[in-house]
Structure formats: structure tokens, C-alpha cells
Design a protein around this nucleic acid. Structure first.
Lengths: 335, 335
DNA sequence: CTGAAAGCGCTAACAG
DNA sequence: CTGTTAGCGCTTTCAG
């Protein structure tokens, strides 16, 4: 019998069931056939002792793990949280456990800390949220010894990757605005993930293709409130009739600034966002935006990871085109 | 030298440094003194091989882990995501890694699955988000063998717990509304965590204390849009002048319904929410609400866990009183 | 201060 | 089908 206070081990189970330790292991893993009689004995013993195999011991000897890590710059912001949720759901469905490693900044020290924390664990795979510079830096430092998948960001070579084609969506949205009759579209950017930001480059491409002037970009922070002064500034310029914002929260801040400055949305100025935040539909006026299915992105990411664990489809690239959601915050320019 | 393709092990390091394996272990753990000369040798070897100790092997022999698990009914909804963020930040600061276990429902099977997944890991401790029935069910099934902490929910005995005193805050907010001159306050509830929901009971307590009529409760889902029809219904009743909603997102939906029905906020009807969602301040009109510091709750939770790992303060209870944020969505009743 | 020996809980050969 | 024998990578005695 196991000593009191200690968790039961596989030998406690073996002893109680009257079989050898490997036999218990065999019913646990199910890999090798065991006679029904002994199997029943073992299962009874497991139930009686409320035995749970130790993942640590298992991993040590089998070198196989049922844990994946998610490396992310953040866990609670809308896109991040939803993506992680998608990964977790897919992982759970396949019996995997998820571990989180947050990389606050792209500082060498911080990235090393996070990468070390991850490399210490024996993992089945790693999903990197390449939404921002910290994520990209972490991916770069990761060895190729463990299956990895990158989510979003610039295209990787040699690493399977799933992305949302933000540039295409931003281009389409900007074209829509121009098609409404706006002479040009102004842009408020969220902190860019990298040198080239898909949302910004899609916007610029659309303007160039239409030979529309490319106004200077306004930079917001992740704080919704940071959009307010930008909105006020934009409203002060009578030339401004359409604004495309890097995300919905900033768009809401910008709209607030515009309204505070005494102009109307969309009569005087059209405003569009990005993400289709849960509150975008509820906003007044409801926000025209781009629906990004982050949870599906996470799920695709885990799928890619699974494939890459089985050596299939290494280097696969999966791109999805987000859909524009037309609502009331955009309209033809007034007079 | 280590075989190619394999991660380097502690004996590869020992060999390269020309010392014994336990000596390497001693510089790794720092528990026992090692001569500066050997220490330098070992550190050089570690750096050269880019060696990372295996957490699995460590845990197996030392029975000590630097990983904690968070059990939660959800990971991406505002309060949940922020709480997890707070836990993760505190854990990371102390060198702990966070593992996530999601419990979708309170079904026995689902709860057992999550609890098993957690018990398989060798953990330093577990933080349970007792925000909802699944969380509460999971806490109940967890053995006392690993340090645990409960966050929110009804008071536990024997388990350290950190909570936000929602009932007190809801009562204060309701009293404020009554103090403004409203005859009573209507209530829209979010899916309740348990039989007694703090927000609802605080509201009811305030009405009783003031001898105000207690109108029937309206039930919303977690979907912000579910508030819209409720808002419309409320607006149709001329008796309604003040509404207290279970969270900000629902409050936004309710306000939308009220406005659609042709009544104004706050001139005709005051609306208050709960949580101080990042967009509450930006809403028109800005929402009166209760600021819940979920990240701080998470941090306090991890602190409690640390104490309980060191056998200090087992059974501690930490309650924080959220602060009311007065904004423009509430006012004295019009005539 | 340092090395030798033992063993954590489990699975992977290998006989039988 | 089943038991015996090894040993995963590390920390922990225990001698020196």
C-alpha cells in the first residue's frame, strides 16, 4: 500500500491489483494488449486509489508530452484572448494541456527569460502569437527542436503559419470608402507589430491604386482613450471625410473625439474600424469594421501544430481573408 | 559530448566542465556552495551547450514544481482574462509558469476531465476562478494535497480566498440611485454564478433597506445584444426610471434598447453597469459603473497561494471593496 | 567543498 | 499476453 499522505504511484496500483508495474502501464497507455481479467483488476485498483499517472515521470521516460505552450505578448486584449481561446479549445479536444508564456517586450533579456521558461518544459509543440515585436522576437530565438507554429505576422519560411490577411481586408475596406465618394481616407494606426503593418499597407495600397492622396498616419496607443484627441484633431480639418482606424476600440475613441468637436458620424465624417469587437455592433452608430475570427485562427494554428508533430505539412501556410462588415458609421460624404 | 540532435543533459555539462553531475546540479539550484573556479567552469559549459534543465526530471526527483494551474470557466471574457493576466504577472515575477485548465460546464464528466488534467501535472499550486458554477464544481473536486486558492464566489472554509465585495458595491450603487430620487431601481442580471449572486443581493438589500419596491429581475445572457430587447421592454414601462445592470456590456445593450424605444439616458432613464469595462468611459453617455480591479484580484490570489505554499496564512480571506465610478449615464429622475 | 551512489515514477525493450 | 530489467535527467543523501 502507498504511504499515507503521498499520492499513489503506479506500483501501489500494481500491488493492489496483483500484477506487475508494466502491466499497469500497459492498461494506462493502451498501446499493448492486456487480458480482460487483469485489465479489470487494474482499473478497479486505479479507481480505488484514485490514481493519476504523473505527467512528469511519463514525459521523462517517453520523451513525449501532451502539453503545448503558447507564447504571447499579452493574454487579455481582445484579439490575443480570443486566439488563445481558440488554441485552447482545439488543444483540449485532442487531450492537450496549454501553458502560457507571456513576453512583455522585445528586450533581449525578457525574450530570453520567456524562451528559457518554455524550453525547460518538455513540450509537444509551441504556438507563437506573432502579433507584435515581442512575439516575433521570441519566435526567432526558439530552436527548431520542438514543433512550432506562428500565428499572424509577416510570412515565415520553414515555420508553419496561419494568418488573417489583414492587408487585403484593409485594402478592400479603403476601396469601399473611396467608392462611396470620399476623396481620400485618413488612417489611425495602432502600435505596429513590425515595420510593415498589414492594416496600414493595405490602406496605402488602395489609396495608391486609386491615385488618392496619402495623408500622414496618426499613431494611437492600445488605449481606446488615445483615439479621442486624434478624433478631435481630425475633425478640425474640413478636408477629412473618412477615417480608417487600426482597431475598433481606437475607432470608438476617434468617433468620440469627432463628436466632441461638433461633427457628426457618418454625416460629416465616416469612421471604420478593424476586428469586429463584440461592442462594435452596439456602438452608436454601429461600426463598419472587419470581422477577424481570432478563435478560428487559434484553432487553425493548433491544427497546423498537430500536423507538424506528425511531420506532415511542415511549412504549411494558411491564410484566411477576413470579411468586411458594413454598418452605419460609414456613408457617402455629405456636402 | 551530447549526441547530436538530443538536447544537452546535465551530464553533458558535467563532462564538458570536467566536474561531477551533482556539482552542476549545485550551481543550478544554488542551494549548496560551490567553489568559484568550478562554478565558472560549469557556467561556461552551460552557456556553450545552451543547456536548459529539464523541468520534468527536476519535478520527478525533488517533488517541487514551479508551475501553477489556473482553473477557469472561460479565458477570454473581460473579468476572466484580466484576472488571469494578474495571476500570470504575479507568478512570472516569482519565477512560476502558468498552465490553463478550462472547465466548460459543471457537468460531472467535464469537471472530472479538467480536474484530472490538473492532477496529472505536478503543481506548486492551483488558483480556481470561482466566478461561475463550473469553477465552483472544480474547486469542490480538487483534493487538499496541493495548495489551492479560490477567487471570488461564496465564502469558502479551509481554502484561502480573495474576493471583490460585489454585494457591498452593488448596494452602494443602488443607494446612490435611490438617493438621486428614483422611486426604485430595476435590475438586469447576467447569468448568475450561483444561487446567490452578489450583485443581485446587494441591489435587493439596498431596496429593502430603503423600503423601495423590489421589481422582478430581468435575465440577460453574456451577449451584449441580449440587453437590447430588455432595454426596449424597460423603456415601455413609464414607471422605470433607473436600471442597474449586471455588467457594462449588458448595460450598453440595455441603453441601446432604451434609445431605440425613443427614451433618453439619463434624462428619462438612468442606467448603471458593473466592471468598469475599458469602453465604459467612452460610451455615450459615459457609464456609471463599479470599477472592479480583476488584475489586482489575480495578483492577490497568487500572493495567497504563495503564502499557502509556505504554510502561512492557510485559510486567509481577502476582500476588497470595488469603487463606484460616477459618470453621466445616471441622473436625478426627470419629470 | 565535492564525488559516488541511490532513486523519483514511469515506459521501453526483451525474454518467455 | 506478461514479468524482468534498464534507465529517462535530475536532486539528494552520504562519505570523504
Amino acid at each position: 500500500m502507498g504511504k499515507a499522505g503521498r499520492n499513489p504511484t503506479i506500483s501501489d496500483v500494481a500491488e493492489l491489483a496483483g500484477v506487475s508495474v508494466p502491466t499497469v502501464s500497459r492498461v494506462l497507455t493502451g498501446a499493448v494488449k492486456v487480458s480482460p481479467a487483469k485489465r479489470a483488476l487494474v482499473e478497479a485498483a486505479i479507481a480505488e486509489l484514485n490514481y493519476r499517472p504523473s505527467a512528469a515521470a511519463r514525459v521523462l521516460v517517453s520523451r513525449k508530452s501532451r502539453t503545448i505552450a503558447v507564447i504571447a505578448g499579452n493574454t487579455s486584449r481582445y484579439g490575443y484572448a480570443e486566439t488563445i481561446r481558440g488554441i485552447e479549445i482545439a488543444a483540449r479536444a485532442e487531450g492537450y494541456t496549454v501553458m502560457i508564456a507571456v513576453v512583455e517586450s522585445a528586450d533581449d533579456e525578457e525574450v530570453d527569460r520567456a524562451v528559457s521558461a518554455v524550453q525547460t518544459q518538455t513540450l509537444a509543440g509551441i504556438v507563437v502569437l506573432k502579433f507584435d515585436p515581442p512575439g516575433a522576437a521570441a519566435l526567432r530565438k526558439l530552436g527548431a527542436d520542438v514543433p512550432r507554429v506562428a500565428l499572424s505576422g509577416t510570412r515565415e519560411t520553414g515555420v508553419p503559419q496561419a494568418v488573417l490577411d489583414e492587408a487585403a481586408a484593409a485594402e478592400e475596406l479603403t476601396e469601399y470608402l473611396l467608392g462611396l465618394g470620399h476623396r481620400t481616407v485618413h488612417h489611425v494606426r495602432v502600435p505596429p507589430s513590425r515595420r510593415v503593418d498589414g492594416r496600414t499597407s493595405g490602406w496605402r495600397r488602395a489609396l495608391r491604386k486609386a491615385d488618392a492622396p496619402v495623408p500622414p498616419v496618426h499613431d494611437a496607443t492600445w488605449e481606446p482613450l488615445s483615439g479621442v484627441p486624434i478624433g478631435r484633431a481630425l475633425a478640425a480639418d474640413p478636408e477629412v471625410t473618412a477615417v480608417f482606424c487600426g482597431n475598433d476600440e481606437i475607432a470608438m475613441g476617434v468617433m468620440r473625439g469627432i463628436v466632441e468637436a461638433g461633427r457628426r458620424v457618418p454625416e460629416d465624417i465616416s469612421v471604420a474600424g478593424f476586428d469586429d469587437h463584440p461592442l462594435a455592433e452596439l456602438w452608436s452608430p454601429p461600426l463598419t469594421t472587419v470581422a477577424q475570427d481570432f478563435a478560428a485562427l487559434g484553432t487553425r494554428g493548433f491544427q497546423l501544430l498537430l500536423e507538424s508533430m506528425n511531420d506532415e505539412g511542415a511549412g504549411r501556410y494558411s491564410s484566411e481573408r477576413p470579411k468586411i462588415v458594413y454598418r452605419a458609421s460609414t456613408a457617402a460624404p455629405g456636402r
